[in-house]
């Protein structure tokens, strides 16, 4: 597993997983689950950049996710904007909102961003719930099917490849970012803000850049989910979804891109696998989360990687 450390190792691993899985899939249901994993993983990668590298927590990331999702629902329906342009617009407005929220907050030291994003996420969800003439209110609204070059994008298999493509590009960009001067600056300020500042790093600016990037990741993932489901509901922007995204990051491993994928995969597939326990489903889910956190404290991927590396030596 040592090869997973390198940038290309991670991309190779993702590519292999994406290419091999369909061979083993007996039905569309599996394609749907995998697609949901890719979409979540994309949002989680963005959040992981913020949490794992900039050391900031966002408790309102579903708000950005919801903005992306509702952009492709509201844009074409109410404003006559083409779906793809709506998605871009959604990503841009999520980035802008992150900028506006983050700019004053990130000048402060400590976990103020968590509090600010918590409020922001709830506000977004409230707007989506209340502006029923635009958003359809709590019951949500339909999203028209995506048509690309006169070709209807339809069915879990096609979305499997599209979302996998987005995940791959998302992971590639994130890995490059981590490897860039920005990434190194982030790691420096993650370890010690004071030291980073002494080293000449503009701490607030670097945090802000990553926060905006992570918001855009979430919005793109949201747009993909809305296209895929053909329906958006305010739940996508809800507080519980924000918590779910944070949990995926922590479970998979903070600061690990592959961990983002693993965290998303575990949290999306576990509830499906656990339905066999019927009434004890939630109990089992809780139990497994506890076991993961006790035995794989730094997240699944980093802990396992170190453990295996240790064994090899």
């Amino acid at each position: 597993m040592a090869f997973l450390k390198g940038k290309y190792g991670v991309l190779l691993a993702i590519a292999i997983i994406v290419l091999i899985l369909p061979v083993a899939f007996p039905s569309n249901y599996y394609f749907r689950i995998a697609t949901l994993v890719w979409i979540s993983a994309l949002a989680v990668i963005g959040l992981n950049l913020l949490m794992g590298y900039a050391g900031q927590v966002s408790l309102g990331h579903a708000g950005f996710f919801g903005m992306g999702a509702y952009a492709v629902a509201v844009g074409p329906t109410h404003l006559g904007i083409p779906p793809v342009a709506s998605a871009l617009l959604g990503a841009a407005s999520a980035g802008l909102l992150a900028f506006v929220v983050g700019r004053p907050i990130l000048k402060l030291r400590g976990h103020y961003l968590a509090v600010a994003t918590l409020g922001m996420g709830i506000l977004v969800a409230m707007v989506l719930n209340n502006e029923a003439q635009w958003t359809g209110g709590p019951d949500g609204m339909p999203v028209s099917r995506l048509v690309l070059f006169g070709f209807k994008v339809k069915g879990p298999v096609m979305w499997y490849w599209i979302t996998a493509g987005f995940l791959f590009v998302g992971a590639w960009l994130a890995l490059n970012l981590v490897d860039s001067p920005l990434g190194r600056a982030l790691r420096a300020l993650h370890d010690s803000e004071t030291a980073a500042r002494v080293g000449g790093i503009d701490v607030a600016r670097h945090k802000l850049i990553v926060f905006v990037i992570s918001a855009v990741y979430a919005a793109v993932a949201g747009s993909l989910l809305a296209f895929f489901d053909g329906l958006v509901t305010p739940n996508t922007a809800g507080f519980l979804h924000s918590i779910q995204l944070v949990t995926m990051v922590v479970l998979g491993g903070m600061g690990s891109i592959l961990g983002s994928l693993v965290g998303a995969a575990v949290l999306v597939t576990l509830p499906q696998a656990l339905t066999v326990f019927h009434d004890y489903e939630h109990l089992m889910l809780g139990l497994m989360m506890m076991l993961f956190m006790i035995f794989l404290r730094r997240g699944i991927v980093p802990t396992l990687r170190d453990r295996i590396a240790g064994r090899v030596q």
């Binding site: 039905s27 569309n28 249901y29 749907r32 949901l36 329906l231 509901t233 739940n235």
Partner: peptide, 14 residues
């Protein structure tokens, strides 16, 4: 959750 519902609907069918 509508997203969950759709997943389970697919599961019932497939």
């Amino acid at each position: 959750d509508a997203n969950n519902a759709k997943t389970f609907a697919t599961r019932l069918v497939e």
